[in-house]
C-alpha cells in the first residue's frame, strides 16, 4: 500500500518537474535561424563544391592541366581539358567541368592539386529542380567572378 502511494506521488512529482522545465524553455529566446530571411556565413574551412582560384594579381587560373584532380576523384566528376598554345609554357586550361550531381565533397581533388588552383567555395544555396544546373563550368565561373 505504501508502494502504491509512493509510486503515485513520485510519478506525479516527476510529471510536474517535466512541466516546469518545458514552461521555462518556453520563455527562453529562440535559437533557430530564420533561414530565407537570415543566413549563415560559412566557416573558412567550409567544404562546398570546388572552384578555380584566380591568381591574386592577374586573376588568371593557376591550373597547369596536370589532371591530378581528375585522377584523384573517386567518382569521376571532374573533366579537365587543356591545349598547347604558342608562346605559353605548358598547357592552357580550356575546359574545367564539375559534375556536382556525383561529387561527394571528399576533397581529394583539392588535396592532390599541387599548384593550389582549386579550392572549396562557400556557396550552399544550390537547390534546383534541373539536373543540368549542377554541371558547373568552373572556367566560366572564374571569369564571371573576376
Amino acid at each position: 500500500m505504501a508502494g502504491y502511494f509512493n509510486e503515485l506521488f513520485s510519478g506525479t512529482k516527476s510529471l510536474a518537474i517535466g512541466l516546469r522545465i518545458t514552461i521555462k524553455e518556453c520563455f527562453k529566446p529562440v535559437v533557430t535561424l530564420q533561414y530565407p530571411h537570415e543566413s549563415l556565413v560559412m566557416t573558412p574551412r567550409y567544404r562546398g563544391h570546388i572552384e578555380l582560384v584566380g591568381d591574386a594579381e592577374t586573376g588568371e587560373t593557376k591550373c597547369i592541366v596536370c589532371g591530378m584532380c581528375q585522377r584523384a576523384c573517386p567518382s569521376g566528376c571532374i573533366t579537365v581539358k587543356g591545349e598547347k598554345r604558342e608562346g605559353v609554357k605548358g598547357k592552357v586550361l580550356t575546359v574545367y567541368q564539375l559534375d556536382f550531381t556525383k561529387c561527394s565533397l571528399c576533397g581529394q581533388c583539392v588535396e592532390s592539386c599541387k599548384p593550389g588552383a582549386i579550392d572549396f567555395s562557400h556557396e550552399y544555396n544550390l537547390a534546383s529542380t534541373r539536373k543540368e544546373d549542377f554541371i558547373f563550368d568552373l572556367v566560366k565561373r572564374l571569369k564571371d567572378k573576376s
Binding site: 574551412r45 567550409y46 561527394s104 571528399c106
Partner: peptide, 12 residues
Amino acid sequence: LETVTGSRLTYS
C-alpha cells in the same frame, strides 16, 4: 567540427 573539418556530417 565544421570549423575544423569544413563539414557537418561526413567529415573525411
